[in-house]
Lab assay of single mutants.
Amino acid sequence: NITYDSTPEDVKTWLQSKGFNPVTVNSLGVLNGAQLFSLNKDELRTVCPEGARVYSQIT
């Protein structure tokens, strides 16, 4: 699982392990844990089509 202390590499690995598509992995894999957790559902949806699914995994 990812935490606020996760590195971008951790986030990328976590996204891949959850089966998100490469677009999602590449879009969000540049963020660290704190940055990812700071995004709300609408912001995640704006960044990638699977944003709502990512949001449900981190809340």
Score class of each variant (00 low, 15 high):
Asn1Phe: 06
Asn1Cys: 15
Asn1Ser: 14
Asn1Glu: 15
Ile2Asp: 00
Ile2Thr: 03
Thr3Lys: 09
Thr3Val: 05
Tyr4Arg: 11
Asp5Met: 10
Asp5Leu: 11
Asp5Pro: 01
Asp5Thr: 11
Ser6Gly: 04
Ser6Ala: 07
Ser6Lys: 01
Thr7Val: 07
Thr7Arg: 10
Thr7Gly: 09
Thr7Met: 05
Pro8Glu: 07
Pro8His: 06
Pro8Cys: 10
Pro8Thr: 10
Glu9Met: 07
Glu9Asn: 11
Glu9Ala: 13
Asp10Arg: 07
Asp10Lys: 08
Asp10Val: 06
Asp10Phe: 03
Val11Trp: 01
Val11Asn: 00
Val11Thr: 04
Val11Lys: 01
Val11Leu: 03
Val11Ala: 02
Lys12Phe: 05
Lys12Glu: 06
Lys12Gln: 10
Lys12Trp: 06
Lys12Thr: 10
Thr13Trp: 07
Trp14Ala: 04
Trp14Glu: 04
Trp14Phe: 09
Leu15Met: 05
Leu15Ile: 02
Leu15Arg: 00
Leu15Ala: 04
Gln16Tyr: 08
Gln16Phe: 11
Ser17Arg: 12
Ser17Ala: 14
Ser17Phe: 12
Lys18His: 08
Lys18Ala: 11
Lys18Asp: 06
Gly19Gln: 10
Gly19Asp: 04
Gly19Val: 00
Gly19Leu: 05
Asn21Trp: 02
Asn21His: 01
Asn21Val: 05
Pro22Ser: 11
Pro22Asn: 10
Val23Ala: 12
Val23Ile: 14
Thr24Glu: 03
Val25Gly: 03
Val25Asn: 01
Val25Cys: 14
Asn26Ser: 13
Asn26Gly: 13
Asn26Met: 11
Asn26Val: 06
Ser27Ala: 13
Ser27Cys: 13
Ser27Asn: 08
Ser27Lys: 12
Leu28Met: 03
Leu28Thr: 02
Gly29Trp: 00
Gly29Tyr: 06
Gly29Cys: 07
Gly29Gln: 04
Gly29Val: 00
Val30Thr: 15
Val30Pro: 09
Val30Glu: 14
Val30Cys: 14
Val30Ser: 14
Val30Met: 09
Leu31Pro: 02
Leu31Glu: 02
Leu31Ile: 04
Leu31Gly: 03
Leu31Met: 15
Asn32Phe: 04
Asn32Asp: 14
Asn32Leu: 00
Asn32Thr: 10
Asn32Val: 00
Gly33Gln: 00
Gly33Pro: 01
Gly33Ile: 00
Gly33Arg: 01
Gly33Ser: 02
Ala34Phe: 10
Ala34Lys: 15
Ala34Ile: 07
Ala34Met: 12
Ala34Cys: 08
Ala34Ser: 14
Ala34Thr: 10
Ala34Gly: 09
Gln35Met: 08
Leu36Tyr: 00
Leu36Ile: 07
Leu36Ala: 02
Phe37Gly: 05
Phe37Asn: 04
Phe37Leu: 15
Ser38His: 07
Ser38Pro: 08
Leu39Thr: 06
Leu39Lys: 14
Leu39Met: 15
Leu39Trp: 04
Asn40Ser: 07
Lys41Trp: 10
Lys41Val: 10
Asp42Glu: 12
Asp42Trp: 07
Asp42Arg: 11
Asp42Gly: 10
Glu43Tyr: 08
Glu43Lys: 11
Glu43Trp: 08
Leu44Thr: 03
Leu44Pro: 01
Arg45Phe: 10
Arg45Gly: 15
Thr46Ile: 12
Thr46Ala: 14
Cys48His: 06
Pro49Gly: 09
Pro49Ile: 04
Glu50Thr: 00
Gly51Ser: 06
Gly51Gln: 04
Ala52Glu: 15
Ala52Phe: 05
Ala52Val: 10
Arg53Asp: 12
Val54Pro: 03
Tyr55Lys: 06
Tyr55Asp: 10
Ser56Val: 06
Ser56Ala: 11
Ser56Thr: 11
Ser56Trp: 08
Gln57Tyr: 07
Gln57His: 14
Ile58Phe: 04
Ile58Trp: 01
Ile58Pro: 04
Ile58Met: 12
Thr59Ser: 15
